[in-house]
Design a protein around this nucleic acid. Structure first.
Lengths: 147, 147
DNA sequence: TAAAATTAAATTGCACGCAACAGAATGTGA
DNA sequence: TCACATTCTGTTGCGTGCAATTTAATTTTA
């Protein structure tokens, strides 16, 4: 018998498995990323840079759905590790241009096995994974669009 | 043309939309939860207690996929707010029994609209939501099962 | 063109989230 | 029963994650 409070049950809210799943997946990355001396957030920054070589801070925030309060100190750490450089744009000194270094590009070859290792942790069929993927992006676009 | 590094693209890793989606959803909760003077994590703890009235710390950790390092200080805050009590089990003094107070139960009536308000943010059909839900739980059970 | 508004990044403060460790209570086996 | 292992909670340290504020550069406008 359903009652007034049913919607408040943990298992009736989509947020809960989403939140839990996200954390658990990140935990599964940890051992692989430890070998690269990267945290998960540092890893997704590096993934952007492996593709684009260069990006400014504002675009990076948008791409990763992160705040400058998160990225500012993190980018400094990646610079300390020698994987990126941070420079002000010549056109507009407000902009911070983040570029990948040779050392950062070299890391890509060590990282290339990470997705394969992770895929083993997630036991979905190709079709299920594709469905999950498209549903997540649908939610995401709905959330960020109507802001 | 696919290349060796394709799996390393942000858009080819399920973790990324999962992580982003989770954060964005929590952000959407914030204004509603602010009215209840709860954070998101405090809210999911209260949801468990609204259902069960009483639970010990270890089980709460398991239920919410959280660590004692997270829950320990958080439970103290909820106790300060008067929503829960913390007591040692009489049978086994190692166990911490968390119980909801009258004030905590009263909060449930104020919280009952939160899920409705949140549902508006996620523009999925009932079927899509059900699919997303079952896929997330499938991943989750796979992740925590083979630990 | 000088003042006001806007934009971008950095900083601060607070709340997780987890690994690693500490410490107390309980269970176990010789 | 006494040493030893196990279980459970709590603490510390580090890394996010975001709101709010600050600072600097640029653009707009009066």
């Amino acid at each position: 018998m359903p009652d007034l409070y049913d919607p408040l049950k943990l298992d009736n809210q989509i947020c809960f498995p989403l939140y839990a799943c996200s954390k658990e997946i990140v935990n599964r990355y940890r051992p692989y990323l430890d070998e690269l001396d990267l945290t998960y957030t540092q890893y997704i920054v590096m993934m952007v840079l492996w593709e684009k070589r260069e990006i400014n801070c504002r675009e990076l925030c948008r791409r990763l759905y992160l705040d400058t309060g998160t990225l500012s100190p993190l980018l400094k750490k990646l610079e300390c590790k020698g994987y990126i450089t941070r420079n002000r744009s010549e056109n507009d000194e407000r902009n911070l241009v983040v570029s990948i270094t040779e050392e950062g590009m070299a890391l890509r070859d060590k990282a290339v096995d990470v997705p394969k290792n992770m895929a083993c942790c997630v036991d979905l069929t190709k079709e299920e994974a594709a469905t999950l993927y498209s549903l997540l992006y649908k939610v995401l676009s709905g959330l960020t669009g109507q802001k």
